[in-house]
Design a protein around this nucleic acid. Sequence first.
DNA 1: AGCACGCCGACT
DNA 2: GTCGGCGTGCTC
Length: 735
Amino acid sequence: MFAAPTRICRVAIPAPLRTVFDYLVPAAFPWPSVGARVRVPFGPRRLAVGVVVEHADTSLASGKRLKPIAEILDSEPVIPGPMLELLQWAADYYHHPIGDVMATALPAKLRRGDPSVLHGERVWVLTSAGSQIDLSLFGRARVQRRVWEALNAAPAGLRESALAEVTPRWRATIEAFAAKGWVAYDDLDCLEGGPPATTAPPTLTPAQAAAVAAVGAAAGFAPFLLHGVTGSGKTEVYLRAIEKVLRQGRQALVLVPEISLTPQLAARFRSRFSAPIAVLHSNLNDQARACAWLMARAGKAPIVLGTRSAIFTPLPRLGLIVVDEEHDASFKQQDGFRYSARDIAILRASREHVPIVLGSATPSLETLQRVRDGAYTRLTLAERAGGAMMPTIELLDLRKLPHEDGISPPLRAALIETLARGEQSLLFLNRRGFAPVWMCYGCGWIAPCPRCDARLTFHRGGARLRCHHCGSESELPAACPTCRGTDLHPLGEGTERVESALTRWFPQARVLRIDRDSVRAKGALEATLARVREGDADILIGTQMLSKGHDFPNVTLVGVLNADQGLYSTDFRSAERLVQQIVQVSGRAGRAAKTGRVLIQTFHPSHPVLAALVHQNYDAFADYAMEERRQTGFPPFAHLALLRAEATAATVALAFLRRARAVARGIIPDTVQIMDPVPSPMERRAGRYRAQMLVQSTKRSALHALLRPWIERIGELKETRRVRWSVDVDPIDLY
DNA sequence: AGCACGCCGACT
DNA sequence: GTCGGCGTGCTC
């Protein structure tokens, strides 16, 4: 008799720990597959759901008694091999704990340990045989009769939850019916299945046709930048490329930056394809999300459309990836596992040998650089589809113009003209609330946030002061806390103030405000946008919320109330952001037959960034910005990592970063620079003091060679007990 | 992240 | 005398 060899599994467990944990596989259990979930005892009296990442016969956990696995949750890998490898790569690259990465990649239900079978509600329908049944057949079987009648009254079928309302004993009845072939079910209800496509494809412009041909001819990994001006029909190129993939029986993965853009794009897909669509974003309920994810994993969802985290959907027959608005910062997760879905998408396309299309009117400098390097192929759509004209762009010099409630006379005149023509105007101001400052005219006191280094914003709706950084709220002070004066006033303009001015000046006009405050309720944004499209609005005033993706065909005037935020900001990306934002919002104008006009108010009309905007020359801006990046040594000419720290006491975070820098001594390659630790631009936020330290290198490999051992050393510092710290690889925002 | 252990203030 | 505050330390 031989003793059975020790069977050990290495398991990734969702905890902020940069290791995997070894467990014994009890003799009575089969080997759990790599990629399967297991329930394991973890720490004192706690069960955790982890993912098996490796089999082993010896454990490195020296001197610890190994615990046995409590339960194997999947007989097949819940995360298929290629996805597991991608996740391990991502955990490595972003230096984030593997267990947490795995948890991010799984829908919440699976994360909790629910079965990974398609357990979605079924929709039951009568078959043609079932609908021809004579009621007398049921005799006195009242339950059967009621179920049949309910189904007969619902030609589109009934969900299981609806059947449960008909009778609690529906299941036995349905099973009996199914055995007789009277009913059939469909479990595609978590997919957005479409009726047969109705919309005829439009004729392509020559540029679109060339782009479609180029993507269609690609075999294996082929990255494309689809650089198309707003309204040039990038979506049509995606649709054609997807169509080809569907014909081959393969799956297409489409990533969009915002939840609010998914219904719009999903509707567009439905009108063209009868293929069902799995929509994945964070606002879905757990059931729907898990169902869509499992359908995608099973290869039953030909099209998967989602936001950032959808990049981790396993797709057995992936044929194409599309990243729409690839420049958008939302593709980068800003907390926890700080990954870039766009960058992971490129890696995934390369590993799975499929083409990837990165679409944008304002591509990121990183992507443009890869085009210049010859790594990506650029496809340009320089003209708007359907013969629509590009809007004209003019600057209004605020140094020479008076302005009332944020609006200068020429912009006001343009509003009047547009109203007179019965067309819509859109005003863009990236600042919600009534006024960004609440000030005492007696002594100059400005209402501060008690928990942040920030001013409180005055909101007239509700007459309160609010902090936009930590959410704290307070009543309006009756008197100035410094001088006891009562001469307190709002200073500056937010969207609420502009809205009220517009209503006052143009009482006959229908003014609609769109910002986080006005569309707080679920579905409110969709409802408001529908009103705009139906022509039930004359002037829109809003924040960046309305600059993204939504088409307003009747808008012919766009006013940018303050272009200057961001022109001279500390963040190296702010100019790029500003241009992208203004180009996006300008693109809302004149998309149909009418030519649009864009007016931009600024105190810096001669700034090169604004000059490039007026000439609608994104490449000129990119050249300018690229040169600036080259000289200052920022991406795409250097690679960055940012070490952040926050603590409840003032100097602790900075002291921690100094210690962290000290422990890099001896392991830092000379091609890597660690900058001085500095307080974050807004040092105090929500009562915590924040600091950061930038690490920079022209060699990506050198940067990562430092990060790996460095992070380990940092983790061993006793100072970590008093701070929250994190590493951000390829940071987007330096604050 | 959880959860337990551990040593100091106001309560049945 | 105990209940519980959150500092400290560990999780195969």
